[in-house]
């Protein structure tokens, strides 16, 4: 088994990954025009302000699009994982995030399906935010 790709946090993303490590989903937004952005970045592409702040995301969203990976690439990393689902999830805060949908048969996924974040501690340093169907409260 090859080692799967792991995020390499940088100056823009460190806060995001630290939040995931603490099982908190945080989104960066412009401190001036309040537009949320993902991925994190130094400048607001809406108003070009460099002042930003981090807000707690609700962790809820809906499935915008998804794929089901059946053929593993690279094979040594993903042969044991297929089939798995990669999705673009639209968060309530208005940004989209690539992720996996877990806890749901691939064939049961529908566009617009409500999902919620679930944190997966994949290593001592890295936690990935994956999503599962929302459990009715």
């Amino acid at each position: 088994m090859g080692a799967k790709p792991m995020p390499v946090p940088d100056a823009d993303s460190r806060r995001f990954w630290e939040g995931c490590r603490e099982h908190r989903l945080q989104i960066e937004r412009c401190a001036d025009c309040k537009t949320a952005r993902f991925p994190p970045a130094a400048l607001c592409p809406h108003c070009r302000s460099s002042r930003s702040e981090w807000v707690a995301a609700s962790g809820r969203g809906t499935v915008f699009s998804w794929i089901v990976v059946r053929h593993p690439v690279p094979k040594d990393m993903y042969a044991g994982e297929v089939p798995y689902v990669v999705a673009l999830v639209e968060l309530e805060e208005g940004v989209r995030m690539p992720t996996n949908i877990v806890g749901c048969a691939p064939d049961a996924i529908r566009a617009g399906m409500p999902v919620e974040v679930v944190f997966d501690d994949v290593s001592a340093d890295i936690t990935l935010p994956r999503f599962r169907p929302q459990v009715p409260s």
């Binding site: 790709p5 792991m6 995020p7 946090p9 993902f38 794929i67 990935l128």
Partner: peptide
């Protein structure tokens, strides 16, 4: 780059690569 630097840190770790 499977090292997932830059924009790839938000895609490749979820097995979204090819």
């Amino acid at each position: 780059d499977l090292n997932s630097r830059g924009i790839t840190q938000y895609t490749a770790p979820f097995g979204w690569i090819t």
